[in-house]
Amino acid sequence: MLTILYFASVRERVGRAAEELALPAGVADVAGLLRHLGERGGAWEGLARIGNLRCAVNQQMVALDSPIADGDELAFFPPVTGG
């Protein structure tokens, strides 16, 4: 099972803050998961095309080609704006 979190403008775009998802067959990295989510259509199709989309795997910021595994916590969000 994957835990997927969505923050800030990305959360508003997909209309969801969090979900649990069984690791889809054939998905081995973040980019693959984005392609899988895009198959839901609607706002999900645009997720992978957000130019500045950031991703964290197990609370570490990573590149979109980073591998993922069952049990991982993923998060998608826009560039950070704290401070």
């Binding site: 950070v80 704006t81 704290g82 401070g83």
Partner: peptide, 26 residues
């Protein structure tokens, strides 16, 4: 610490203005 916090710590600001609310751009 401040420079890295601004680019690496997961915080997001949303501002309320007379035109409505909007996410602050990085």
């Amino acid at each position: 610490i401040m420079d890295y916090l601004k680019t690496r710590a997961p915080f997001w600001k949303r501002e309320l203005t007379a035109q409505g609310s909007r996410w602050v751009e990085a």
